[in-house]
Simulated scan of single mutants.
Amino acid sequence: MLKKSLQVAGVLILSLSLVVGCSSNNPNASDGKEDGGLSGTIKIDGSSTVYPVSQAVAEEFMKKNPGVNVTVSQSGTGGGFEKWAKKETDLSDASRPIKDEEKKAAEDAGLEPIELPVAYDGITVVVNKENDFVDTLTIDQLKKIWEPKSKVKTWRDVNPEWPDQPIKLYGPGTSSGTFDYFTDEIVGEEGKSRTDFTQSEDDNTLVQGVAGDKNALGYFGFAYYVENKDKLKAVKIDAGKGAVEPTNENIQSGKYAPLSRPIFVYASKQALDKDHIKQFLEFYMTEGKEFVPEVGYIKLTDDKYEENLKTIGVK
Rank of each mutant, 00 (worst) to 15 (best):
S5C: 06
V8D: 12
V8F: 08
A9Y: 00
L12D: 08
V20E: 10
S24K: 06
A29D: 06
D31H: 00
K33H: 10
E34Q: 06
G36K: 04
K43C: 10
K43Y: 15
G46Y: 02
P52F: 07
F61R: 06
V68R: 05
S75L: 11
S75E: 11
G80H: 06
E82T: 11
W84R: 14
A85D: 12
K86M: 11
D93I: 12
A94D: 06
S95I: 07
S95T: 00
D100Y: 14
K104N: 03
K104Q: 08
D108S: 08
L111Q: 01
L111M: 00
D121C: 09
E130S: 15
E130N: 13
D132S: 09
D135T: 15
T138H: 09
I139F: 08
I139N: 12
D140Q: 15
K144L: 10
W146C: 12
K149P: 02
W155E: 13
E161C: 13
P163R: 05
P166D: 10
L169Y: 00
Y170L: 05
E190Y: 13
T198P: 07
S200H: 13
D202P: 10
T205M: 14
G212S: 10
D213K: 03
F220A: 09
Y224W: 10
Y225R: 09
K233Y: 14
K233C: 13
G242W: 11
E245T: 10
T247V: 08
E249F: 03
S253G: 04
I263P: 08
V265D: 10
V265M: 14
S268F: 02
K269H: 04
Q270H: 02
L272M: 04
D273N: 13
F280S: 00
F283K: 05
E290W: 06
E290F: 09
E294T: 09
E294L: 15
V295E: 04
T301A: 15
D303A: 05
E307R: 03
E307F: 01
L309T: 02
G313T: 01
K315N: 02
